Amino acid sequence: MIQEPALPPGWEMKYTSEGVRYFVDHNTRTTTFKDPRPGFESGTKQGSPGAYDR
């Protein structure tokens, strides 16, 4: 089984109701579709995929 590298501290991976993966940075309280791990580009969309909830 291939294991992906861990997200940076304070980051979480979530999915929209449509199943699109996005990332929550709890450090800055922002969201992005761009994977924060080096070498992982998950898309070019920018903006908030939804309300920030902790």
Results as ranks from 00 to 15, higher is better:
G10Q: 08
K14M: 13
G47T: 13
T30M: 09
M13N: 04
E41W: 08
A6T: 05
E18D: 10
G50L: 11
H26C: 03
P49C: 11
V20F: 03
V24T: 05
T28S: 08
A6L: 13
E12S: 10
R29V: 03
Q46P: 06
A51V: 11
P36G: 00
Y15L: 11
P8W: 01
E12K: 02
T31E: 05
T30H: 05
E41Y: 14
I2V: 07
T32R: 01
Y22E: 01
V24D: 01
M13A: 13
R21N: 04
Y52P: 13
T31V: 04
G19F: 02
W11A: 01
P49G: 12
R21K: 09
S42V: 07
G39N: 08
E41H: 14
K14L: 14
T31G: 01
S17I: 06
E4L: 06
V20G: 08
E12D: 12
V24G: 00
P49W: 07
S17T: 11
Y15M: 06
I2M: 09
M1H: 15
R37L: 06
P5F: 15
M1N: 15
K45I: 07
H26K: 05
Q3H: 08
S48H: 15
R21S: 07
T44F: 03
A6I: 12
F40C: 10
D53Y: 06
G43M: 08
A6G: 12
Y15G: 02
L7P: 03
R21H: 11
D35V: 03
I2Y: 04
G47H: 08
T32Q: 04
S17L: 06
I2H: 06
I2T: 13
K34Q: 09
K14C: 05
K14T: 08
P49S: 11
E18P: 02
F33V: 03
G10L: 06
Y22L: 03
D35M: 05
R54Y: 10
T32F: 02
T44S: 13
D25P: 00
S48L: 10
Y22C: 02
F33K: 03
F23C: 00
E41R: 09
P9L: 12
I2N: 15
G39D: 11
E4C: 13
P38K: 11
T28G: 03
V24A: 08
W11K: 01
T32A: 01
P5S: 15
D53N: 08
P36K: 00
Q46L: 10
A6Y: 13
L7E: 01
G10P: 00
S42I: 11
P49M: 12
W11I: 06
R37G: 05
F40Q: 09
R37N: 06
P8D: 04
S17P: 10
G43R: 09
G39E: 11
G43S: 12
T44N: 05
S42N: 10
F23L: 00
D53W: 04
M13S: 10
A51F: 09
G39W: 12
V20Y: 04
P36R: 00
S42D: 13
K34T: 09
K34R: 09
S17Y: 01
N27G: 06
D35L: 04
I2L: 06
P38R: 14
S42C: 10
Q46M: 11
L7R: 00
A6K: 13
A51T: 13
P38C: 09
R29Q: 08
G50V: 12
G10W: 04
F33P: 01
K14A: 14
R54K: 12
N27L: 05
E4V: 09
R29P: 02
R37M: 04
Q3V: 15
L7W: 02
P8N: 08
P49L: 10
M1S: 09
R37Q: 03
G39V: 10
Q3G: 10
V20W: 06
L7M: 10
D25K: 00
S42M: 10
V20A: 08
M13V: 14
G50S: 14
D35T: 02
P9I: 08
D25C: 02
A6D: 15
P36Y: 00
N27I: 04
H26V: 03
G47E: 14
D35S: 03
V24E: 07
G43Q: 13
Y22G: 00
R21M: 11
T31D: 01
G43L: 09
S48K: 14
Y22D: 00
S42F: 11
E4N: 12
E4D: 10
R54S: 06
A51I: 15
T32W: 02
G39I: 15
T31N: 03
T44I: 10
D53V: 07
P36H: 01
Y22P: 00
K45A: 09
G43V: 08
R54W: 12
Q46K: 12
I2P: 02
T32D: 01
G10T: 02
E41G: 11
S17H: 15
Y22S: 01
R37W: 04
S42H: 06
E4K: 10
A6M: 09
L7I: 05
K34V: 15
L7T: 03
A51Q: 14
G10H: 04
R54T: 13
H26T: 04
P9G: 11
E4I: 09
G50W: 07
Q3N: 15
P9D: 15
G50A: 13
F33S: 03
P8K: 06
T32C: 01
A51Y: 09
W11C: 02
E41S: 07
G39H: 11
P5A: 09
Y15T: 13
R37Y: 03
T16Q: 02
L7Q: 02
R21P: 11
R37E: 05
P9E: 14
T16S: 08
G10F: 07
T32N: 01
P5K: 15
P8S: 04
S48P: 12
E18N: 06
T32E: 00
P8R: 04
I2S: 08
M13H: 05
M1D: 07
F40G: 14
F40D: 14
S42T: 14
K45M: 14
P38Y: 07
F40V: 13
Q3R: 10
G43P: 12
P38A: 15
P8H: 03
R29T: 04
T44H: 07
V20N: 12
F33N: 03
F23S: 00
K34Y: 15
E12N: 04
E12A: 07
L7S: 01
Y15C: 11
R29W: 04
F40P: 13
G43N: 13
K34G: 07
T44M: 09
A51M: 14
Y52T: 14
Y15E: 11
P8I: 02
D25M: 00
D25Q: 02
A51D: 13
P8E: 06
E18K: 08
T31F: 00
R21Y: 02
G47I: 12
Q3S: 13
F23Q: 00
E4W: 06
T28I: 03
S42G: 12
T16F: 00
Y52F: 14
E12P: 00
P38V: 14
P36Q: 00
K34S: 08
E4R: 06
G47D: 15
R54A: 05
R29F: 06
R54V: 10
G19C: 06
P5M: 15
Y22Q: 01
G10E: 07
R29D: 02
G47R: 12
R54G: 14
S42Q: 12
T16Y: 01
T31P: 00
P38L: 11
T16R: 01
A51E: 14
E18C: 07
K14Q: 12
E12R: 02
M13L: 08
D25W: 00
S17K: 11
Q46G: 13
D35G: 03
V24I: 07
F33M: 07
G47C: 12
G19E: 03
T30W: 02
D25I: 00
P49N: 14
S48N: 11
R29G: 06
G43E: 10
D53Q: 11
